[in-house]
């Protein structure tokens, strides 16, 4: 595989990971660029699991930039995701709500996930890494990966549910804006 072929194979996944993690296109483009510069400075042909390795470099770049920009960053809208006000009464939220959500809304909600959860979710769904590979990348136990994944899904479900009810009933928004 040539450098160009490697770039073409992984550029979309690396970019998407950066885009979701950093929540803006300019930073995502810069970090995506730097990830490949970093990769090509290494002896990448000798790496066995190149996907996991690239995703790990990507995540490290993203987390480093997030850490660096922490103070500058606008405080993220805090979602009161633990607000259990009507979950119990609604059955099969998946079926009712999911079809109605558009991509744009998904994205808006995804961007509100805390960094820790978002890191696990992007590595799992964009990078397609195994639980063990994610644990290795983020230096956390496999159990923590699983619980963060679960927490992220639960949180998304809650957000979708809230978002949905806000439109339908015009109720007071619960911090999802």
């Amino acid at each position: 595989m040539t450098e160009r072929e490697l770039f073409d194979s992984y550029n979309k996944e690396v970019y998407r990971t950066c885009y979701y993690m950093l929540r803006n296109a300019q930073d995502a483009e810069d970090v995506c660029h730097d990830v490949f510069v970093t990769v090509f400075r290494q002896d990448w042909k000798r790496i066995e699991n190149i996907r996991a390795w690239i995703m790990r470099i990507t995540m490290n770049h993203c987390l480093n930039l997030l850490r660096k920009n922490q103070t500058k960053r606008e405080k993220q809208p805090q979602v009161q995701w633990l607000h259990e006000h009507k979950a119990a009464s609604i059955k099969s939220v998946d079926a009712v709500v999911l079809e109605r959500e558009t991509s744009a809304e998904w994205e808006k909600l995804l961007k509100q996930l805390p960094d820790k959860l978002l890191a696990v979710v992007t590595l799992r769904f964009i990078g397609e890494l195994s639980v063990a590979e994610i644990a290795d990348t983020l230096h956390i136990p496999q159990g923590t990966v699983k619980s963060r994944l679960h927490k992220a899904l639960k949180l998304m479900r809650k957000k979708l549910e809230q978002n949905h009810s806000v439109w339908l009933k015009g109720e007071e928004r619960l911090g999802t804006s």
Partner: peptide, 26 residues
């Protein structure tokens, strides 16, 4: 909904081998 950048242009720039952010990974 994810707006992709111009990957060809990015490729030319990658070949310069210069990092853009100072937040580089390990």
């Amino acid at each position: 909904t994810v707006p992709y950048p111009d990957f060809d242009r990015m490729w030319s720039s990658i070949q310069q081998g210069e990092l853009r952010t100072a937040a580089g990974g390990e």
